[in-house]
Nucleic acid binder design. Structure first.
Lengths: 123, 123, 123, 123
DNA sequence: GTGGTCTAGACCACC
DNA sequence: GTGGTCTAGACCACT
């Protein structure tokens, strides 16, 4: 299931990508699983099929899913390579935020503690 | 001094805002300090004055600077309010990244350790 | 419909903002309603699109409308927060005027009575 | 004594005019009283004499003060005419604010009650 | 000199 | 089609 926030400034296809990535990360989608078809997902989420297409295309370019023409899209084996790339990307993104929080007087332990509770609000 | 990356996908005025915010956070800009004039900064950074003004206008709306027409723009006292807003914003942004890192197998302590070293690559 | 007074000293974008705020307050614009597109309104009011966009942008910053890129601008749910802010703003603006009226010999009841009739001339 | 807020968006000469008008209204300045000289006021308030000049010139045009060349500026008799003009001006300005407050759910009595307390923050 | 407003017109991303 | 960004250049009010 994919939750979309129409009022977010984040592009729809980015929200879709993140939603799928998130499901893969949490284990709701496992290697070999079939993703919903473009038309199916488009209808259930009331989104233009072109937008879904773009999300799937991007994910395939990242190596996270693969397409079998006439069959559908499937979750790819997560290569150690892709995992490491993603990890570096996240670390790079998290550092400046962390730095500014420190300057705002948030101690590392407080931050860690804060991260252990609360729900995961995206954008 | 403000460094602009013309190749970044991030809007110019966002880069300007971040650059100024960063200088305020690191103490290079202190409450009461005068910011470079719109025209001056525009010329030195080879950017259209309107773009600078948009950045300044945004920062004023956030309560980080104040503007005296005919005089210039000045760094505001950092109100507890603005600080708290910014902190919440940062926490909200950092949480999903952290969550995904956990699922990628990065323990909290490892992350903290990682954050204590390394340089601060933006964007 | 938006009425603009080109001869007023008030900035165009302020007039636009007030006009929209007024329509929201009187119920002509309700939460979820779509505002005229930037280009459309610009043409119908013979105003530069940038000026309209500035007005919309301000209103969004105030939390009165929200914008979906590629779709349009929509009236937001009036958050209690935004309402309270506006109320404080109005009270702050009304107080000095009231005070001066008192000193000019206008009793509170007379003022109240006066406010119950008469048409609402802006600016 | 004149209090100036350098950070206000209101022009200095407007603040000066209001300050003087306020003192006249409160009785601190009475018909025939001599106003501080341009130079004197400029120095004591650390303001450019030109700005004071403009404020005095405006007030004279409104009939609130009169100038005796070589002598100074003096508070004029408040003609019933000027008083009535000012009153109408204030009423016209106060009405739209009041109307919007009503729509925000502020009852007339609540407003009156609110106006009986609190200090008089300008701008 | 300063910032504030406005116009005109361009290009982009997204839907 | 939509809004978002950016440039270029003009005029104004204020100091």
């Amino acid at each position: 299931m994919i939750l979309i926030d129409m009022r977010s400034s984040k592009p729809l296809y980015e929200q879709i990508k993140e939603s799928i990535r998130s499901q893969m990360v949490h284990g709701a989608l496992r290697p070999g699983d079939k993703l919903p078809s473009v038309r199916e997902l488009a209808q259930s989420a009331a989104i233009n099929p072109n937008t879904i297409q773009k999300a799937y295309r991007d994910l395939e370019a990242e190596g996270l899913i693969y397409t079998v023409p006439g069959k559908g899209c499937f979750v790819a084996e997560t290569s150690a390579n892709a995992k490491e790339n993603r990890k570096q990307e996240l670390l790079k993104a998290i550092r400046p935020l962390w730095t500014e929080l420190r300057y705002l007087g948030v101690a590392d332990e407080e931050l860690v503690r804060h991260m252990k509770g609360g729900k995961n609000d995206d954008d």
